[in-house]
Write a protein that binds this DNA or RNA. Sequence first.
DNA 1: ATTTAGCACTCGTCTCACTTGAGTGCTAAC
DNA 2: GTTAGCACTCAAGTGAGACGAGTGCTAAAT
Lengths: 343, 343
Amino acid sequence: MLTERQLLILQVIIDDFIQNAQPVGSRAISKKDEVSFSSATIRNEMADLEEMGFLQKTHSSSGRIPSEKGYRFYVDHLMAPFRLSKQELEKIKNTFQEHLMEYEKVVQKSAEVLSDLTNYTSIILGPEVYETRLKQLQIIPLSSHSAVAILVTNTGHVQHRSFSIPVDIDSSDLETTVNILNERLNGVPLVQLNEKMQTEIIDLLRKHTKNFRNAYEYIRAALMDDQPVKLYVGGKTNIMNQPEFKDIDKIRSLFSVIEEENQIAPILRKNADGIKVSIGHENELEAMRDCSLITATYSLGDEQVGTIALLGPTRMEYSKVISLLNVLSGQMNKTFQSWYETK
Amino acid sequence: MLTERQLLILQVIIDDFIQNAQPVGSRAISKKDEVSFSSATIRNEMADLEEMGFLQKTHSSSGRIPSEKGYRFYVDHLMAPFRLSKQELEKIKNTFQEHLMEYEKVVQKSAEVLSDLTNYTSIILGPEVYETRLKQLQIIPLSSHSAVAILVTNTGHVQHRSFSIPVDIDSSDLETTVNILNERLNGVPLVQLNEKMQTEIIDLLRKHTKNFRNAYEYIRAALMDDQPVKLYVGGKTNIMNQPEFKDIDKIRSLFSVIEEENQIAPILRKNADGIKVSIGHENELEAMRDCSLITATYSLGDEQVGTIALLGPTRMEYSKVISLLNVLSGQMNKTFQSWYETK
DNA sequence: ATTTAGCACTCGTCTCACTTGAGTGCTAAC
DNA sequence: GTTAGCACTCAAGTGAGACGAGTGCTAAAT
């Protein structure tokens, strides 16, 4: 167990290091107001803390820096709650002021605000589109041999796909198909769409259209194989501001992670409610081994959940970031709830 | 005027430097097969070429590197045409094989292929959406107090906007308005939409709807103030592979340029037909002062024009890039023409 | 009149020894 | 238990020397 004094010293060291990114020496600590014992005493305590794995040295005669275990302890037990400034709260509020009624835009703006207020990189994962429900399906002909299929969900999400119409498809068949689909599939979650089509609609279509298989397949293909996991990223270049990332190779590998949706998306997706902090090697991805990722969730309406995350060095302002994510996800929830209340 | 020998030497130097990114010395040149004179002779010629401004030294006793004037001369007069390899041509073709009928996707793929084949960063500016013509307008209600407005163009481009419906708007008014707009505005270029609405449609609307001003304003606002200059970027991290960009500050400022659509878009937009090469300080933007930007145009249907560009260091494989852009823009033209032929 | 060989000179880069300073660990005194 | 004192460590900075790639110039060769 740690003594009071050790707790204090650990906290001071981590706070200082988060601020200055420099190893913290015993003399520097002894000068702080909240510390009243001599540097020698502190040295002894630091040696103990190091032995316990909370601190480490960059070289044998350097000051201490927090280890990942140290950060973990800090986040779990030590960290003082952060009071966001008036301006910061104001900035967040403003994001939700202009009420454009599209979650895409709100999310994009949120990502920008987050990265702006933190100097880290924000990543927001859009909500699971497949949990949303079909509102309307439409085929709009563009020319004699092409058309665009549009799918609208209850959240106002629009998904579309152009396709060319083979000669053996009758345009009235297409129309009939769409009508039937609209009638029968309204309110069905996108994720069940395929299944429902296969089981319930096919017979109906067979009855009412000449060449049902073709028209049906075309509409299905046009709308189904999209993979709409949208990622919104803000402040990509902020990564480069952090002194721990002055190495180009590190930046490059981090960028690859951020740009590749299928690398980062599953990691963000699998978070339960609340705020989760992943420090250094707690992250799955090799490229993030000296980063911390802090995630929170938000929900759109009743069912669909998205994730907000901030990516920074392990030397992160955990306290501030967590406060920010709390406030922001709360705002998002409130806003979206008011749009999509299902009562 | 330059002598034959000077031309040869200049070409050899630039070719070599483009390959190796190292200052080229007289001895290295004299060893090349196509060069038959001694290093001393070459030194003399190099001194002359430097005096004329085509070459420069990194320090007083270093080999020569091309100046911007040197690159300019190379591009205009010296450069040997590049023969693309079978595999490269194959890769480009494959991009257009799977015929997804959406220019957005084709353009995105093209950007990826370009950056992939060059190790530079590709930037493609989407076509001027406003030159496309309105195909259909739709309002799809989401709930009692919200709806999504969808606009489809003749190119299959879909633009949408959710909005909340104020209580004083009658839903039948909305419907009537949309019907009238569709009837009257089909085929009108988006850029004229606003004007046409103001002049021709307003009277009609006044006649047929109770509270025309509101419904009309809402639809207008919902669809108009989007700014759909889409930028497709491929191979962002390629920038970091170039040895001239091992400085983080340079990378950061370049990234800012690439990410900020309104910085780079106007520059790309203002290109005439054909291929244009901007070397170093010929670029307007400060951040691009040691880059070259090579742009080409493509057209979608008959009127709308977009731009493909490659961004790399001034030490760029001009010859290869120009060949690639030629082939790719040709392919894009061909593909899009077949989709949107207006006969 | 060119072209070339030869040589002195320049400058960046690498290495090595040396210094400095921040910081530690340990011991002995308080 | 706490602190002062001191020897020790190591990173980072500095300056001298060696090296090598490359130049410019001059004088000889073609």
